[in-house]
């Protein structure tokens, strides 16, 4: 039930964002609001069997606030730094690619998804495959640091910094 309501509210909010400036009730017309509620209910009913699991707990205000702080703070900073690095590699052509296995020891799907997307969006690293049993990630790294190769499991601080801790705090 909570899942159904959460999906309905999310769909309705998205519909509101997409139909602003249509009338005089706030920013919307009555017809758009009515159609929005109807469509949101239909979407929630259709996706009932798809959106399974305990993802509703991710909607807690604390987790959402942490996610926003993470996105505008450490994540954006890492993305900016790493993009300049890749721009440098594009121009000079100095690359040393390889696929490295890291074990961030995350326990659920939401946090591993968040981590994999973070790794992919920060340039220089690209998630290729996930080991379903252990939640280990295989990461394609455009400029492998040889010091990491000396030991297994690999030290992931050079690849994704503090991202696993953030993923654990936000979605763990």
């Amino acid at each position: 039930m909570t899942r159904f309501v959460a999906t309905t509210v999310a769909s309705f909010l998205l519909y509101l964002f997409l139909t602003t400036a249509s009338g005089a009730v706030g920013l919307w017309s009555l017809e758009e609001l009515a159609l929005g509620v109807l469509l949101a209910l239909i979407v929630a009913a259709l996706t009932r069997d798809v959106l399974k699991g305990d993802w509703v707990r991710l909607l807690s205000p604390r987790r959402c606030a942490l996610l926003v702080i993470y996105l505008v703070g450490p994540f954006f900073w890492a993305m900016a730094k790493a993009n300049l690095d890749v721009a440098y590699r594009v121009i000079t052509g100095r690359i040393k690619p390889g696929i490295v296995r890291i074990s961030p020891k995350l326990t659920n799907d939401a946090s591993i998804t968040l981590l994999a997307n973070s790794i992919t969006l920060t340039p220089g690293t690209l998630s290729v495959e996930v080991e379903e049993k252990t939640n280990d990630l295989y990461v394609h790294w455009i400029n492998v640091d040889e010091s990491v190769l000396a030991q297994t499991p690999r030290d992931y601080t050079l690849i994704c910094g503090g991202f696993p801790e953030w993923a654990r705090r936000i979605a763990g």
Binding site: I95, G98, R101, E129, E131, Y138, H140
Partner: peptide
């Protein structure tokens, strides 16, 4: 296969 790769853990796995 990744070209010029120095390591490929996925292939080894």
């Amino acid at each position: 296969k990744p070209v010029q790769a120095v390591v490929d853990d996925l292939e080894d796995a």
